[in-house]
Design a protein around this nucleic acid. Structure first.
Length: 98
DNA sequence: ATTATGACCGAAG
DNA sequence: GCTTCGGCCATAA
């Protein structure tokens, strides 16, 4: 595991319940702003939502990125946690992209 | 060092 | 709205 990946995990693990981060935002908090693509790559190798709730990370436009179980399962989990979903899309109000 | 890859992003049609 | 294209970045080989 690389330092960047570790940073990404730490950030993702700090995402509050009922809210979601964008890949770009996670990248920025990880110290590598703009490395959204690299973030997705790191999450792809570790789909442990027990230690890393990767289902709380969505794309900049609110659409789903990827998920081992499929975007539908990811949406179901988010809704279950209290995140509002609009037609396969996360409500902007629930996305933390400061 | 160079090439290839991927859960991305923004602009253009 | 959606699709396509070019550009970004960290990793692996």
């Amino acid at each position: 595991m690389t330092p960047f990946t570790k940073a990404v995990y730490d950030v993702v693990a700090s995402i509050p319940k009922g809210k979601v981060f964008t890949y770009a935002h996670v990248a920025k908090l990880a110290g590598k702003a703009g490395a959204a693509r690299a973030v997705g790559n790191a999450l792809n190798k570790n789909t442990d939502f027990k230690t890393v709730p990767c289902h709380r990370v969505v794309r900049g436009n609110g659409k789903m990125g990827g998920y081992v179980k499929g975007t539908d399962k990811k949406i179901a989990l988010l809704k279950k946690e209290g995140v509002i979903i609009d037609k396969e899309r996360v409500r902007t109000s629930c996305i933390i992209d400061s």
